[in-house]
Design a protein around this nucleic acid. Structure first.
Length: 376
RNA sequence: GGGGAUGCGCCGAAGUUGGAGAGACGGGGCAGACUGUAAAUCUGUUGCUUAGGCUGAAUAGGUUCGAUUCCUAUCAUCCCCA
């Protein structure tokens, strides 16, 4: 993988760049749709490519390991072939499931013992096994196995967890170095900064991660319920330390305004379930703000869902029609909404990139942050 | 035309053998939540109100200390017989 920075904003730390992978280029800043189980829920790969123009998507190690399982994935020739997606894939390691499946897992120094949320069966995930699984999945970007700590998190727990994540990181790196890609394409490894909402821990973690000298770096453990100001403060602390010439990935973020502010702080990559999940739940994101399309006030609004959208379905169909589809629980509702939201999120980062290159990012961003947070 | 049954909330439905229903439960309606997806999921709310109360069990009467529950008439719906 290579990363080339094309331009840095004058009024902020925002950068525009290009990541080159064996499955193609990624123009940054980028938003990566989440496709946990080998599908971005509600839409087809063809729509992801042609309409939304997703340049890279996510998969999830924990979920894909449980189903379909590594045997099937190996026989399929990896996830790219299995799901017929020829652009880059990044796999989360299962570190988020350590957080979200709290109560069904036990953390030890060796790794995490999960009780399957599907059938109750027990599975041990170690840094080594998680790297092996991601080799089998064939992700272009392999994430370190970490513990995503909850919020709030007391200092002692946060410190101990961070140090364990660091020790796991060394094991991940060792495992990656002693193993090879299975399908012939390069697999980039990304370590993850932790440290909860404590600046001192974040600094220590960022320095440790930077010292590993990997191809890219990620920030985890944020957007788990902490105030936005804390999230921005931690991101800023960490970005000051992480190498400038490598991509920075802020995991799990976020709201459109979070993405814009984080781009200004020097983040290059984002992923979040919000556009897809909230789309399915009837929240529509547009450049003018967000709307709850199920609300009565849209019942006779025959204006387009988003007149300027790059998605034809958003220009052709009216808000009233989309509301109707939601009210009668038709599957097409989720599909149209997901396409709209992901198109918007991709537009948002692409436009950010354009503004950075044009040297007009900061003023544009300041206005945009207000617009996108407006409740229509 | 004759006989019978039923009739409360937006709808369906529980319960009241005459003793304080704003009334379980389900649906619908209205609104909220969701940030590296156990989520096409979950939560709240749903007579009126100047918030003190008020109105309410098809409609109109009656019996009773007291009626949604009993009686009479009317209306509506359903069933059976002609």
């Amino acid at each position: 993988m290579t990363f080339k920075i094309e331009n840095i904003d004058v009024g902020s730390s925002a950068r525009a760049g290009i990541i080159q992978t064996d499955h193609g280029a990624i123009q940054t800043p980028i938003f990566m749709p989440v496709g946990t189980q080998g599908t971005v829920k509600g839409i087809h790969q063809q729509e992801l490519k042609d309409t939304i123009n997703a340049q890279i998507i996510l998969g999830n190690t924990y979920h894909l390991y449980l189903r379909p399982g590594t045997d099937i994935l190996k026989k399929a020739g990896g996830l790219h072939a299995f799901m017929a997606w020829d652009r880059p894939i990044l796999t989360d390691s299962g570190g988020y499931q350590v957080y979200s499946l709290k109560g069904m897992r036990k953390i030890t120094e060796e790794g995490v013992k999960f009780q399957s949320h599907i059938d109750g069966s027990k599975h041990v995930f170690s840094p080594e096994s998680v790297m092996d699984i991601q080799r089998i999945i064939g992700a272009d970007i392999v994430m370190a196995f970490d513990e995503c700590t909850p919020y709030p998190c007391d200092l002692k727990y946060a410190r101990n967890s961070m140090h364990m994540t660091h020790r796991w990181l060394r094991r991940c790196i060792d495992r990656m170095q002693m193993t090879e890609p299975i399908y012939g394409h390069h697999q980039t490894f990304s370590p993850i900064v932790q440290g909860s909402t404590y600046p001192d821990l974040r600094r220590e973690s960022a320095e440790f991660i930077a010292a590993q000298d990997q191809e890219m770096n990620a920030i985890g453990g944020l957007s788990v319920g902490e105030p936005h100001d804390d999230m921005y403060a931690m991101t800023e602390v960490v970005c000051d330390i992480l190498p400038k010439d490598k991509p920075r990935y802020l995991m799990g973020v976020g709201l459109p305004e979070n993405i814009l502010e984080s781009i200004a702080l020097g983040i290059d990559m984002f992923d979040c379930v919000l556009p897809s999940r909230n789309g399915r739940h009837g929240i529509i994101y547009t450049p003018q703000g967000l709307i709850n399309i199920r609300n009565q006030k849209w019942q006779d609004d025959f204006s387009p869902i988003d007149a300027e959208s790059l998605a034809p379905t958003s220009r052709i169909h009216t808000k009233a029609y989309l509301r109707h589809l939601f009210k009668v629980e038709e599957r097409l509702a989720a599909q149209i909404a997901t396409i709209q939201n992901l198109s918007f999120f991709l537009w948002l980062v692409n436009e950010s990139r354009r503004q950075i290159i044009a040297g007009t990012f900061t003023s544009w961003k300041n206005q945009m942050v207000k617009d996108v947070a407006t409740r229509l």
